Computed example of a mutant assay.
Amino acid sequence: MPAEPRLVHIVDEVPELDGSPEHLTMVLVLDGFLDAGNAAARAARHLVDLEEDGLLGPPAVPSSSRVVATFDVDQFHDYRARRPAISFVRDHYASYDAPRLVVRLLRDSGGTPYLLLQGPEPDNRWEAFARAVREVVERFGVTRVVSMGSVPMAVPHTRPVALTHHANDPELLLGATSPWRGELRVPSSAQALLEVRLGEWGHPAQGFVAHIPHYLAQLDYPRASAALLEQVELAGRLTLDLSVLHAEAEQREEEITAYLADNAEVDDVVQALERQYDAFERAEESGGNLLAPDEPLPTGEEIGQQFEQFLAGLEEPDDPGPDVAGPDTTGRD
């Protein structure tokens, strides 16, 4: 039987990690499923931008952003299901956006190194992918894997961003209270399976899933990106500059507020969600449901129709706007 092809290629020498740091975090973001509002993808891009813009670490410390492990994406990606973009320039094809699944070496504001595993979620061979990630974890001595994700929920944008905490070791939760009761059967993901397998192999892994207002699920929602990275800071013992994300979040909130002021019907939808949210908060200690019994939840179609103009109005002519042609931000099979 032919040997299984090597699924991950790891750099032999990484001087920045010599001496096995006491704590080495690997942040995990897989695009395509758990990313309503592009929250996790935007958070990951922010981490890379900080490094490439030279905003991290003392001036005397050179940028350490580089790829230290590369996964064989051809083994995991279904090109017909998620076709990469390619440019057609007058009479020829150019600028093929090849999917990449890589591990980058980054540093936080204090110069502490950490890793970022980012790329499209594997469409197949999840178990093989998990084993390949294990190679990376054990090769570099990763002490904790921290994942980010986001899902559309019946929550208003006028309330704090809610987060679901999860981990393969209860001690990693640090007393965080789950909003869920009992067992939920939900569609799995490579990211979720990886957390399970890492736990079986004795490697700590935890994550955070932001709850995105479902009427904004197709729009970049930087407020949630900042909320996710605030949790990554705590879990990974990192210090990150989130000022750019906070500024983007303020601008987005102003745009939403201005739109609601001119659209009473949409504002009514948001107010109904506010009442549902507040009712849940009051009933949470007694095990109440997320939905208030006297507040019917608008359907996704109804909310989509109400916000169709809103989404179109936020796109500037010279701005590509939200990545609506990219990975599905609301989840897919």
Results as ranks from 00 to 15, higher is better:
V8K: 02
S225L: 07
D319S: 13
S87T: 15
T158H: 14
M26E: 01
V151T: 10
R45I: 07
L260I: 08
N168T: 10
W201L: 08
A154H: 12
G331L: 08
H211A: 15
A279T: 11
V145E: 04
A292E: 15
L245T: 05
L229P: 02
E13S: 09
A205V: 05
R144G: 04
D123G: 15
G287M: 13
S109G: 05
D262N: 13
G207F: 09
P296C: 13
E16V: 00
Q306S: 14
L105E: 06
T329A: 04
R100D: 11
W126H: 04
V151P: 01
E200D: 12
G149F: 07
V142M: 01
D35V: 10
A190P: 05
E281Y: 14
L116F: 07
V266K: 05
E13K: 07
E301P: 04
V133T: 01
V196P: 02
G287L: 14
A249G: 06
A279E: 14
A132R: 04
A190Q: 07
G300L: 11
V269F: 10
W126P: 03
E171F: 00
S64L: 07
G149P: 00
G313H: 08
P152I: 00
P120T: 05
G300K: 13
L240Y: 01
D294T: 10
N168W: 09
V232I: 07
Y277S: 04
I256G: 01
S243H: 06
A226R: 05
H157T: 04
A227G: 00
L314M: 10
G313A: 15
I212K: 05
P222I: 08
D31A: 07
E285N: 13
L173Y: 03
Q306D: 10
L240G: 05
T329P: 13
V103T: 05
Q231Y: 15
A40I: 07
A167K: 04
D220S: 12
A3V: 10
P322Y: 11
D91A: 11
T158C: 13
H157A: 11
V161C: 07
P21S: 03
E200H: 11
F208D: 01
E316I: 11
G110K: 11
V232Y: 06
A235L: 11
R275H: 09
E265I: 12
H165G: 02
V244T: 06
A81N: 08
V161L: 08
L291M: 09
L240N: 04
E16K: 01
Q306Y: 15
E295D: 11
D169L: 00
A258C: 09
L229Y: 06
R80E: 14
E127T: 11
T177I: 12
S20N: 13
P2M: 09
L50V: 01
R282A: 15
D323T: 08
L240P: 02
A132V: 14
L56A: 03
Q251F: 09
S150F: 06
D78L: 14
H46I: 09
D267K: 06
A36P: 07
G202N: 12
L117I: 09
A205F: 01
A162K: 01
F280M: 11
G202R: 11
D169Q: 02
P320V: 12
S286K: 13
E285R: 15
E233C: 03
R104H: 15
V266S: 09
G304R: 04
G141K: 06
R332E: 12
L184K: 14
